[in-house]
Amino acid sequence: MDIVERIDRLFASHGHVPYEGARREAISALEHALQCAQLAEWAHADSSLVAAAFLHDVGHFLAAEAVARNDHVDDRHEELVVPFLAEGFDAAVTEPVRLHVQAKRYLVRIDDAYARSLSPASVHSLALQGGPMRDDEMERFEDLPFAREAVQLRRWDDLAKEPGRRTPSIDWYLALLEDLRERPFLDSKTGIGAGNVA
């Protein structure tokens, strides 16, 4: 099955489910993804970063299919999803997704106002994810390719929790994914590319 079809099926199976327990938010996973992608579009982000915003929590769906949800264990969704997404997308999509949890830990460390703005669910998950970064972690994070994009994604992530906000449909963002998947792949380190024949 095509990667975009698989993403569509994951949202069909899990997107309507609201975040529950200690991770409870006022909107569903699909609403959160759509709002996050919309915020990226409103910020005139490139299509890869809009896609990353839309896909950043898909790893939660994969984790839910693998194991029972436990509010007191970090499911490491940001790492779990990368091999799945890498089947169709390059690092400009997968790396901001992989780094968005680290970006939260970074922002909490450098921005008191950001830390105070986190929802109770985000505060809970922050504790599971390691809390604010240490100095050495901050230096390593700042040197990573796509760290800046991950920080942008993280800010949209935390704003994308408004009940009832109107957004484009999931089909709008699935079409964007199709366009991205069909673009020639370009290795971000070597600059060498090839047509995506997946």
Rank of each mutant, 00 (worst) to 15 (best):
E65D: 15
V17G: 01
L144V: 00
R134Y: 03
V108P: 09
E139H: 08
Y173R: 03
E137K: 02
V73Y: 13
R109F: 01
S117T: 01
G59D: 10
E31N: 12
E95L: 14
G191M: 02
F141H: 04
T94N: 05
D171G: 12
A22L: 15
G191D: 03
A92N: 12
I27T: 05
D75L: 05
P168I: 00
Q35D: 09
L128F: 07
E149G: 06
R69C: 12
D158P: 09
V93Q: 04
F11M: 08
F185A: 07
E149W: 01
A22R: 15
A160C: 10
S125D: 10
L153T: 04
R9T: 13
V123A: 04
V123P: 00
V73L: 15
D143Q: 14
E95A: 15
V50Q: 10
S119A: 14
D90A: 13
E162Q: 15
F11V: 07
F11L: 12
G195A: 13
P83N: 03
R155I: 13
D71E: 15
L80I: 14
A86S: 13
R116M: 11
A29T: 03
D112Y: 00
P168T: 00
K161W: 00
D57E: 14
Y19P: 07
E87W: 01
K161I: 10
R148C: 09
D75Q: 07
A37W: 01
R24G: 06
Q102Y: 07
V151F: 01
G15M: 08
A121V: 02
H60I: 10
N196Y: 02
E79W: 07
V58F: 13
R6H: 09
P168A: 11
G191E: 02
A92M: 09
A52C: 11
L49V: 05
A45H: 13
I7Y: 10
S28Y: 04
K161C: 12
R24M: 11
A113L: 12
A147Q: 05
D111E: 11
D57I: 02
C36E: 14
A43L: 08
L128I: 08
A53S: 15
S47D: 15
L153D: 06
G130W: 03
L144M: 14
F54R: 04
V17W: 03
D57K: 07
E178W: 10
T94H: 05
A147D: 05
A37G: 12
A175Y: 02
D75M: 05
P18G: 05
L118T: 06
A12D: 11
R155M: 14
R6C: 08
G59T: 09
L30R: 13
A53G: 06
D112S: 12
G130A: 06
R23L: 15
A12E: 13
V58D: 06
F146G: 08
Q129F: 02
W156Q: 04
